[in-house]
Amino acid sequence: MSLVERLAPHLPYVRRYARALTGDQGAGDAYVRASLEALAAGERQLPPHLTPRVALYHVFHTIWGVTGARLEPSNDHGGIDGDDATRRLLRIAPRSRQAFLLTALEGFNPTEAGQILNAGPGEIEQLIAEAQAEIDAELATQVLIIEDEPVIAADIEALVRELGHEVFDVASTRSEAVDAVRTKSPGLVLADIQLADGSSGIDAVKDILGRYDVPVIFITAFPERLLTGERPEPTFLITKPFQPETVKAAIGQALFFHPAKAKQAA
């Protein structure tokens, strides 16, 4: 089979990976182009025991790994004109960023990621754990919990702390929630909908979003109230009873994609 036949179907995806990895499509394309040139010149080969897609990413890795990864400014990526998610990606160290993107973005399994990066399964797991630690540190914030059931509030508090966040306050009514944010903004709000005094978590969140631009996750046994009513943006919805992992995943997603700037809503 020709190189075109083997590799053409995978080029859009390796471009996506290169863009995410470098933070810039032009730079990403330059590394993809250099990889293809190296293959064409015979300086690199597609390892025959790998599938074409894995082999292509592997060759890209050998090119980027010896040049791009080392040329990166080690500290800040303020020069990159990207969105906040892109900037957050670039703060992850190169090799753990690769392991993270290969598995979470590109959908490779850990074995394939290991073949691409020349790493054993143990190292891939370690890199993924390191990426997570860096993401957690980057996203660490103050969380306001609006929940009237003490047991559930305690569960949520524990889970929030496990992720490395601080608990900003725990409010059990709309007015407590509004009081809590009187002088400063939390970085994230986790809100129940049906509160102790009959007040509504939706109203509490609307009050908060009227003042601050903050991501919100509703955790509720009554999701229909959110689905039928006007849903304040930006919000996520988790149904009780919840799996801790689901809440953790939603927290990471909400924070990772929330704009870091423009803290103060008009």
């Binding site: 863009r19 499509q25 993924i128 995943a249 994609f257």
Partner: peptide
């Protein structure tokens, strides 16, 4: 690593939307 991967997949899903045009 399994737990980290689960959380990373939630981010990966949104990244795929972000890079859809690419």
């Amino acid at each position: 690593a399994d737990e980290a991967r689960l959380r990373q997949q939630a981010i990966g899903v949104r990244l795929r939307q972000l890079f859809d045009e690419v």
